[in-house]
């Protein structure tokens, strides 16, 4: 009886140990590729909102209130800034955006990087036609949809999703304003 229990424990331990070793091996093997893939994802977002640059903005970040403002440089001179903003006010959940700004405090671009809005209705917030409204305006401006007295277009049947985008852009902008004032 006692022998049986020891045998059970031993067999399970050996299997668990082998499994752990195997997983650790695969983890070590895939870690660099996973980190790189995650970084590329983020860089695609940054590329979409920033003007042309030649540094690595994700590594060249300034930290303000524990959040990052990404700085894009070309030939050593700063050409733009980018920040991430979230809003929990989406129809299906959190909406996350990246906002890019030029050194003169105008918005160079906005992309939605994460959302769970309704396909066919709220998810029109990812289209360039909708997002282009932000381009060229000042980052200290408060954005709102037309229904709330702002100038951002809402869609018929979907006011909440654009409202969440405005909210997320405003959070990112607040960070950008601080980033642009940052003294090295």
């Amino acid at each position: 009886m006692r022998n049986d229990i020891i045998r059970y424990a031993l067999t399970l331990s050996v299997i668990a140990l082998l499994s752990a070793l195997l997983m650790a091996f695969v983890y070590g093997l895939t870690k660099p590729a996973i980190d790189e893939a995650r970084r590329q994802d983020f860089l695609i977002g940054l590329n979409a909102v920033l003007p042309e640059y030649d540094n690595s903005p994700d590594l060249d970040a300034i930290i303000i209130d524990n959040q990052s403002v990404y700085v894009a440089k070309k030939g050593g001179a700063i050409v733009g800034y980018a920040a991430v903003g979230h809003s929990p006010k989406g129809y299906g959940g959190t909406v996350s955006v990246i906002v890019g700004a030029l050194a003169d405090s105008t918005i160079s671009g906005v992309v939605v990087v994460k959302h769970t809005e309704t396909p066919g209705l709220g998810d029109r917030i990812i289209t360039a036609a909708f997002l282009s409204i932000f381009e060229g305006s000042h980052i200290s401006r408060e954005y709102a949809v037309k229904a709330d007295g702002g100038h951002v277009d809402q869609f018929s049947g979907a006011t909440i999703s654009p409202r969440a985008v405005c909210d997320a852009v405003n959070t990112a902008n607040a960070l950008l304003v601080k980033g642009l004032e940052y003294e090295y």
Partner: peptide, 15 residues
């Protein structure tokens, strides 16, 4: 164990 391996491999190569 197998699931974790598939998970890691897909995350790395089919991100």
């Amino acid at each position: 164990t197998l699931v974790t391996m598939v998970d890691l491999l897909m995350n790395a190569y089919l991100h």
